[in-house]
Design a protein around this nucleic acid. Sequence first.
DNA 1: TAGAAGTCTGAACGCTGTTCAGACTACGAT
DNA 2: ATCGTAGTCTGAACAGCGTTCAGACTTCTA
Lengths: 231, 231
Amino acid sequence: MGTKERQQRDRDRLRHAILTAARDLFVTEGYRNVSMRKVADRIEYSAAAIYSYFPSKDDIFFALAEEGFRLLADELLATVKDTADPLDRLRRGLWAFYEFSKSNREYFELMFVDRSVPSLSQDFQRFEFFQETTARAEADLQACIARGEFSRELNPAAALHVLWVGMLGAATIGLSQRLAPGEDPDALARDLLDTLLSGFTTGIRSTFVASECAFHASAAVTSTTTTLNHA
Amino acid sequence: MGTKERQQRDRDRLRHAILTAARDLFVTEGYRNVSMRKVADRIEYSAAAIYSYFPSKDDIFFALAEEGFRLLADELLATVKDTADPLDRLRRGLWAFYEFSKSNREYFELMFVDRSVPSLSQDFQRFEFFQETTARAEADLQACIARGEFSRELNPAAALHVLWVGMLGAATIGLSQRLAPGEDPDALARDLLDTLLSGFTTGIRSTFVASECAFHASAAVTSTTTTLNHA
DNA sequence: TAGAAGTCTGAACGCTGTTCAGACTACGAT
DNA sequence: ATCGTAGTCTGAACAGCGTTCAGACTTCTA
């Protein structure tokens, strides 16, 4: 009896050990310096053995990315937990997103920047992280709109994208170290966040309508749909 | 006579051929799929020969990145050339920056995102591209401030960083394909740009002062200096 | 014409992800 | 207790990678 079950337990245990070894290497030595042989050495198996637990190296990193999304979701939840004000919740959440890019460089790069794990681009939207976290953030955005802190024409889903993708820019520049020595990526991130939130305030966008039209009529922009504001 | 000169010409020619071969492979097959042996095959030399023209593979990509900065600078200049209005110039320039990330994916990734060419992080600020282009853009920003289109307290240098780093976020997410199938990265980029520019308009930021203070007093933000606004 | 200077190559080193025949173990059925 | 089978793991190998280096070859100088 119970043989199958024990075999399955053993398999799960080894699978877990592989992920642990890969994660340790990954966070200390960086994404690019993890090799199947190094992982194998850590768990004291041959490199070939790993291939009966993961079809390829990419699949290990896909699993680690999933882990990263859980980590980030937990981090965001913890950050926002004791804050009642929707605008403060948004600020703190977005700032935590940026901070995560520094405290978990390798995870972050894997999750949002890297192109070398193709399956991540494909299955990105499937992570439940996005359902939960975006729903919460959109509710906060909606609350800010209801309170009159943000423009009433704002589309919460599109606005949330604008916010986190903006912060992604700051995170990317911080990770890739493309700033001059004197320039502080944290200050830049903060200014970026301030500017974006300011941009959502009621009645601002109308001052731009004239030049927007000029711009949108140019050849530079092909799409004519606007997702940020409701129709 | 002239021997040294001819030798130098030959060296230059071959060096150029190496760069051409590397660039061709690079833009068609992607950064990660360029190998010294493939480049060597193209120019019909051995892989070892390349090492008397470039100390390492990284140096080839450093040279290509420089090329990319020239390309982008030309692109930005051409885009903005016939536009007089400073705000329109800013918009068009920033949009061209985003478009460049799509039309020159590999260059862009090398220039702003990639971490695997360490020398790029180190020498980033040295590219003269930044002197010229940022000076022009800052002048436009200054003009917008003078015209009252942007807040008078705005620091042009910091504001420019905010703008292009924000657009970098949109470019990054477009390149790494981390959007759901239905989501349009172009629309996102446009909304981001609109929001950032709106955020610079006069008198907006004051409505945020209260919650900003709450935020800045929190443990999440260590830095207390604000670069975006003048002191 | 001998020597020096310069250029290019083939082979090699140690690494990479991945595959596969075969060895080994442990089990269920007879 | 023994046999066959199912599952697991390994060593060796393949094709590729960036890089180095002794030596062959060419070309110019004296």
